[in-house]
Design a protein around this nucleic acid. Structure first.
Length: 348
DNA sequence: CAGCATTTTCCTGATT
DNA sequence: CAATCAGGAAAATGCT
């Protein structure tokens, strides 16, 4: 795959923004990226993104938030205010004077107190940025597995990259939100109007406005949820979803969701663990927490491990998972799953 | 609109 | 006993 590096880097850039809408419009890191391959390193060059806005004068997007300088923090605030079409005069800029480390220590509540309705947006975006390194890990993983990369790109691009540039807000609300252990994980499920990170520019303002008053006034068609209707009562947690945009599944099937958590041990806050990395055997450590996250992704607060596991069992027949007998909470990836293997020695 | 894919929900019964 | 596992059924939603 030596000669293909140039093409590959272009593809990668597209791939990233396609797969991770939260990164849309963000400056993608440029320059060389090295991936260990056997005992040498392969170096790819990531070109300047050709996308529209690249408003990042101080380079905050090139770094993880923790490492931001005061200037970069300030820049990020400006960017966010602009991006959310927020009225800058309502923000006290003195509050923005802090370094990245300080910024990262703020809780969602802090943000709300300091920045009102914008607080949630800021907090969510920050969570995404913290996950940035993970995105690169994933990309590296994909590169190592050329097959998978090709397939993935083809699939994703066929579907929506060339089709239209409208990003489905519900699609990638949180790439791997089990990440951000300290911050996001401890949050109670917070059902903002629309997905908070629903970055799609088109209705971000609407979302913001709804956020403030959001009481699920009606008028919304209120579609039914996927699956057989619940029997009744359960939990009348109906604070959810103001509107359900399109669908959310595409590209994020349950097994992929599980795989992606597994692939990111640093940020995988003890949710799942590999039992046998090479064989693809893994175990749920916090089954209900994983189910909740899955539910969050699908905007379904009533997801439980019980139901999630039913879906997992359906994978046996399709050989996406293999059965592991006698071991509770243990599953194994099957031959029809991809993207989890460490050394999928790719044929030349 | 039909039919398919992929869940989601429920349920009964068996195991751990 | 509480969690899980096993699957069958039925139903929902998006896609082709």
């Amino acid at each position: 795959m030596a000669g293909a590096t140039c093409d590959m880097s272009n593809i990668l850039t597209n791939y990233i923004t396609t797969l991770y809408p939260p990164m849309q419009g963000l400056p993608v890191p440029t320059g060389p990226i090295s991936i260990p391959e056997n005992d040498k390193f392969l170096t790819f060059s990531i070109p300047e993104p050709s996308s529209e806005l690249t408003g990042d004068p101080s380079g905050w997007a090139q770094n993880i938030p923790n490492l931001w300088s005061r200037a970069q923090v300030l820049d990020w605030f400006s960017y966010s205010i602009e991006r959310n079409k927020w009225d800058a005069s309502t923000i006290d800029l003195k509050q923005c004077d802090m370094d990245g480390q300080h910024l990262c220590q703020l809780s969602r509540e802090d943000m709300r107190t300091m920045f009102g309705g914008l607080g949630d947006k800021l907090y969510d975006h920050l969570c995404q940025l913290k996950e940035y390194p993970f995105v690169w890990d994933l990309i590296c993983d994909l590169i190592r597995n050329e097959d998978q990369l090709q397939q993935g790109i083809k699939k994703e691009m066929d579907i929506d990259f060339y089709a239209d540039r409208t990003i489905d807000p519900g699609y990638y609300s949180d790439p791997i939100s089990p990440a951000s252990p300290a911050s996001c994980a401890s949050l109670p499920y917070s059902p903002q109007a629309g997905d908070s990170s629903a970055g799609s520019d088109m209705d971000i303002k609407t979302c913001l406005n709804k956020d403030v008053f959001s009481n699920k006034s009606d008028g919304t068609p209120n579609k039914r949820r996927r699956g057989r209707p619940r029997k009744l009562n359960s939990d009348c947690r109906d604070i959810l979803e103001t509107k359900k945009s399109k669908h959310s599944a595409r590209g994020t099937h349950l097994w992929e969701f599980i795989r992606d958590i597994l692939l990111n041990p640093d940020l995988n806050d003890g949710l799942l663990k590999w039992e046998d990395r090479t064989e693809g055997v893994f175990k749920f450590l916090r089954s209900e927490a994983v189910a909740q996250l899955w539910g969050q992704k699908k905007k379904n607060a009533s997801m439980t491990y019980e139901k999630l596991s039913r879906a997992m069992r359906y994978y046996y027949k399709r050989e996406i998972l293999e059965r592991v007998d006698g071991r509770r909470l243990v599953y194994k990836f099957g031959k029809n799953s991809t993207g989890w293997r460490l050394s999928d020695k790719v044929s030349q």
